[in-house]
């Protein structure tokens, strides 16, 4: 009955998949695993407490929140919006790629604004639609595609650049988990080994976005020159 110990994995997979309360699912999974492994209740509580305290380092990013809060009050979003607004008169693909670059650089410096809400919806998607629409009227399907691509570009930048910031939740979680597993690694080394994927993702997404231009026939600059 040794395999009963895997109950915790089953609980966490089902719990997340079925969208139960995440905090409760994680704690129930930990409790169930320890109980099945034959750990007594007092020892279980001690194990929970010890494991939580020893992993406090994962939450070190809370220390960066007051600073982000202060600069947010003093125009962080507005400054970013002003910078992005300068991306006018470009093809849809280039707007997307410059936004991708801005997003990756910002992530590397720990600025993880909620991109979909603060930039994609109000700014990037309308700008790309305007750029694509300058050539001719867009079909509803094309508009839907532009919205989806704008959202996707934000996600690519966000996911593959966030580990470039040493105080990000992901980097701290990796360092702490690897330590618990007996293979301690430095957060700064994790950042170093996250660079290749950030660069590769940028290149691949950039090519992908340049090809996106083709479906809007964005060759008007060339034609005007002719």
């Amino acid at each position: 009955m040794e395999y009963l110990k895997l109950i915790g994995i089953v609980i966490i997979i089902l719990g997340f998949a079925l969208k139960f309360d995440t905090i409760a699912v994680v704690i129930i999974s930990a409790v169930a695993t320890a109980l099945v492994a034959g750990i007594s209740v007092p020892d279980l509580l001690t194990l929970l407490g010890k494991s939580f305290v020893e992993n406090r380092v994962v939450s070190l990013f809370f220390l960066t929140l007051p600073m982000i809060g202060v600069i947010e009050r003093h125009g962080l979003k507005q400054a970013a919006v002003n910078a992005i607004k300068k991306l006018k008169n470009l093809t849809p693909g280039r707007i997307l790629n410059l936004y991708l670059l801005i997003r990756e650089v910002a992530c590397a410096f720990g600025i993880t604004l909620s991109g979909q809400v603060q930039f994609v919806r109000p700014l990037i998607s309308p700008m790309v639609q305007a750029a694509a629409g300058a050539r001719g009227k867009l079909t509803p399907k094309q508009i839907d595609l532009i919205k989806a691509r704008s959202a996707a570009t934000d996600n690519f930048g966000n996911f593959y650049a966030q580990n470039l910031f040493v105080a990000s939740g992901g980097v701290l979680l990796m360092a702490s988990t690897m330590k618990s597993l007996g293979h301690a690694v430095e957060p700064t080394s994790i950042v170093l080994y996250s660079i290749p994927m950030a660069v590769i993702t940028f290149i691949i997404t950039a090519i992908y976005n340049m090809r996106f231009d083709r479906q809007f026939n964005v060759k008007r600059n060339k034609k005007q020159e002719d």
Binding site: T22, I27, S29, L47, E54, T177
Partner: peptide, 18 residues
């Protein structure tokens, strides 16, 4: 607080031999 709780879960898994 979820990342830290997940790290805790990882430690509990390790202690239980999962």
């Amino acid at each position: 607080i979820l990342p830290q709780l997940l790290a805790m879960l990882g430690a509990v898994f390790t202690a239980s031999g999962v």
